[in-house]
Write a protein that binds this DNA or RNA. Sequence first.
DNA 1: AGGTTATGTGTAACCGGTTACACATACTAT
DNA 2: ATAGTATGTGTAACCGGTTACACATAACCT
Lengths: 326, 326
Amino acid sequence: MTTIRDVAKKAGVSVATVSRFLNGSGYVSADAAKAVTEAVEELEYELNPVARSLNTKRSSLIGLILPDITNPFFPELARAVEDVALSYGYTVILCNSDEDPKKEKNYIETLKKKYIAGFIVTSNQLDAPHYADTKLPIVALDRAINEKIPVVSSNNKEGAVLGTNALLERGCRNILFLRGPEALNPANDRYDGFMEAIGKSAVDYRIVTCPFHYADSQKIVERELKANPVIDGIFASSDVSAAGALKAAAILGRNVPDDLQIIGFDGIAMGEMLSPGLSTIAQDVYKMGAIATRILIKRIENKPVEETFYEIPVKLVLRGTTRSVE
Amino acid sequence: MTTIRDVAKKAGVSVATVSRFLNGSGYVSADAAKAVTEAVEELEYELNPVARSLNTKRSSLIGLILPDITNPFFPELARAVEDVALSYGYTVILCNSDEDPKKEKNYIETLKKKYIAGFIVTSNQLDAPHYADTKLPIVALDRAINEKIPVVSSNNKEGAVLGTNALLERGCRNILFLRGPEALNPANDRYDGFMEAIGKSAVDYRIVTCPFHYADSQKIVERELKANPVIDGIFASSDVSAAGALKAAAILGRNVPDDLQIIGFDGIAMGEMLSPGLSTIAQDVYKMGAIATRILIKRIENKPVEETFYEIPVKLVLRGTTRSVE
DNA sequence: AGGTTATGTGTAACCGGTTACACATACTAT
DNA sequence: ATAGTATGTGTAACCGGTTACACATAACCT
């Protein structure tokens, strides 16, 4: 393995000069620069990042902490983070936290020892003291940890307004809202949006809390539809719940969309594979991940970060579970 | 930060003794062990993995190379790898290769510099010279790279036999087989299994190559069903293709499963969310990932690895796209 | 002219571990 | 009694970079 000392010898300069040239720090004459460049070329020298880390106490590692990559929302996020990280020369470490504070903390401790450069965190747990006192750059997704930590989030409230209005415009007069878990920030924002939009109408509605879980949602919706056959529209706070609702409708022989219209929230790929295709409020998850990563890298590299709150617009995607507006 | 020198001083021994004790290498007296243990405790000493890496040229990083985490097959795999890695004290780096040899190579080079401990590779490209000459421990998923590299794979052929027979037993007399891309090992094994099972029957069949892509599959199946209305069974080499087939059937007004039965392959979570639920040959993806990781870690730690080929059994999961056997 | 400041470079300490080697003592075997 | 092996420990070099500091020269002031 060629070391910086080999390069220095070949170029006829000191290691300090080589290091300075390689890092663009301090003064290096044109002659020295040329000699070093040539030596690097000839020896095919590549800097050892571990040795560098040891004394700079920095690395090019980014930690991505998310509840569970298996949740259909996260792969696309991970992909975006990885793409952007790669393009800036960073490497992504995958951490499934299961929303367990102990696991999260453990990851943070472990990775700190490796001089990790920063974290992207998608945590749903509400108290996060171990983030607060971390000096490391962090960017949060979907939920605020504290004022100093930038947040990237979908415009959940607006999305919910959009979805609710879509159902109203399509003639729904009795809407079931599948509210997400109260512990989740985005679920609360979506709830607010629904309430705002529904409040402006004179339509009947019903709200049921429903986990972002397929089988549970199916059961809940089955029960609701049986108990309240007048329901002619369902707005689910997640696509997974919407899929459960769709299944429940199928089981009960309800005709979607003629008899019952459904809109989900998230925009996961599965939506289009359902029959009928799921209408949904699509989040631009890739964009969220990409932006979060860019902000993180700016923070890591001490570049100025303009804002601390980034809201990504959502989009109404109409497929088969809603009718066209007449 | 406490260093090994602080510990040595506190324990009244040399750094060499501390290091030996910590690594369980060389001789350490009971007295010294006790003193070091106490000093470590009191000082809350934690070893610096970067410093260690620098001279051992090893780390506790594992690289997971896969085509695209966004593909529904991979999140569960990644989850398994991460779980097992974590339990052994390793950390997982996520690498989306897009099946691009350049990207793969680049990752390997980059991570080698970080003294990565080993790789788990799910690569579909057939030539992989850059793996061959790598001294690093590697475990492959789903395809053999060379004889020295252990492979973990589903029992694809048997799965295909199972699926084909399931359709036959359920009365299908004209089966469409959606063959996966020829470049993929598992697709070929599934093809072999189908041919073997269908050959033993006297049933008509038709084979069409079809990418593991939803919209494309849908189009292909729509075309096929129109051209050959006699088709009463579809065996798809992937669940995504099966989902496309199911959609095509819905569009053409074919009744699944009374008129047309469908079986997929993979067992991705989406299958149960479809209506009707997708019958499929389920791979135990989690198990594949977990086993691959355990083997890799054995290799990394120079423990004996019994075999170099691990075949994980698949399972027939019957849901709504197939009838019950009368 | 003389003092500042900018430019350029090298030596050597340092980051925080591991380990080769030298040395000392205790135990075994002959 | 003596060689040979097992046990135990410390010193110092080393992994491959970065950087504080000292020093030298050139350019820019007033």
